[in-house]
Design a protein around this nucleic acid. Structure first.
Lengths: 244, 244
DNA sequence: CGGTAAATTGACCTGGGTCAATAAATGTGG
DNA sequence: CCACATTTATTGACCCAGGTCAATTTACCG
């Protein structure tokens, strides 16, 4: 059976009909691959399509004019990228592949067609953007009001949970796949200070590290310190009509 | 003709059919008023409805367990509040009236019905949430990577633009309607430092203040300092089918 | 095996926080 | 319309979490 990564993600929220799956598979017909470090989209590029990330991880960020960077999100398989193409003519952010990536570009018109013809899918996509919005508010609260240590802890938990959603075999140990500079640009810190916080978390025996892999040694304590909530949990789409 | 504040807001994005307007008017049938300072929704409350803000201004925020507060957004007439009710059973944030407010509660089921039956409206609401998401990423970049002065300037511009969208007669002078503590909680600063930045902006003759009213004396310079973009501008919904 | 990117550490600095004391503004009841 | 109470704004003195700079070390890569 042909497959759709977006369907896998939406299917975690609610059951999909065969027709809905077929529609999503068709959306991901085209494919484009990007090498690690390659730009999937650049700030100010003309926006004509949205993307589904099919394989690999990516990040979106903005560059400020003093050269500093704020990473807005890390993206994993199934994520919809550049959804702002539905609203704006030009991109306000850049999207770059963190690992080699496979991406399906979707013409804005094709996406629009699906939104208009498939009300359940449109509702699910709206639900997904709400999840992402709440996750973004969590990050805003973290950056605005919590300590460096807490922000780094929150980022570790967030990455682990995203990875686990794709691979349930992942437990406390995982490959972070980010440099300390990237962690800093996501949390509003410097790479130097991220390093200090990681070593401090390690010294406090909340985490362990070896060769790019991180272990959450005392996950409950980390969750408390980070004020962390997994926003992909506790979803309730009871109002969505059951599949035909 | 009966009216809908949400229709006014969505109508700025794209023309609405008479039927669509009628549907929106029906959504705002019920009304509930809140005094300044009253809680429209409290963190952890059971979520059973979303709201349209019909009159007044409000804000949503989270409280962290050290007692600090992060304000996520200020809300104005027409805004959809508590949209996360579509996804979660309990609220992750509080919403409080900043002025006396009139609000229309909408049962989650009623909102769902509209999303499923009115694909153009669903698409417009999705578009609106994208605008809000991009505005939120701007704020994240501001809090994560810019100076206190720049964040305060950005907030002033943002509030002015929101007010102006509702009342085009507003020029460079407007009533902020926020305490310095609220500005601080929105920008990740302390009230004391907000005060210093406001006086500094005043001393630099970028703004003027008198009795709660702010004037943007040198708006272009402020926009540059704040790295500000009005995300309600430059919308392109060309893909949306024309009204019947 | 060199060469570049990433991590680590130490010394020192600073933007913004903290604390505390007034002053101004805004309400409120009488 | 006034006296008092409560927020809100303002200012100064001082502090510290996190930034900056610079030097190594370690890991990765063709």
């Amino acid at each position: 059976m042909p497959e759709s990564c977006l369907a896998d993600l939406l299917g975690d929220l609610a059951p999909l009909s065969a027709e809905e799956r077929a529609v999503l598979v068709r959306l991901e017909e085209r494919e484009k691959s990007f090498r690690r470090g390659a730009a999937i989209l650049r700030e100010n590029d003309r926006l004509t399509e949205v993307f589904v990330l099919r394989r690999g991880t990516a990040m979106s960020y903005v560059l400020l004019d003093d050269g500093s960077r704020q990473i807005m999100a890390f993206h994993y398989s199934g994520d919809l990228l550049a959804m702002s193409a539905l609203v704006y003519r030009h991109s306000s952010q850049s999207i770059v592949a963190l690992t080699d990536c496979m991406v399906s570009p979707i013409e804005r018109g094709a996406m629009a067609q699906v939104l208009l013809d498939q009300p359940r899918l449109a509702a699910l996509i709206l639900a997904l953007t709400q999840i992402e919005r709440v996750a973004l508010t969590d990050r805003l609260a973290g950056v605005g009001r919590t300590s460096a240590r807490s922000r780094v802890a929150a980022l570790l938990l967030m990455v682990r949970d995203r990875l686990r959603a794709l691979d349930p075999s992942i437990g406390q140990t995982f490959t972070l796949g980010l440099t300390q500079e990237e962690i800093g640009d996501a949390t509003g810190l410097t790479a130097v200070h991220v390093n200090r916080m990681l070593r401090q978390l390690e010294a406090s025996e909340l985490i362990a590290r070896e060769g790019g892999r991180v272990t959450l040694v005392k996950e409950p304590a980390l969750i408390v310190e980070a004020n962390y909530v997994n926003r992909y949990d506790g979803i309730d789409l009871g109002w969505l009509p059951p599949v035909d």
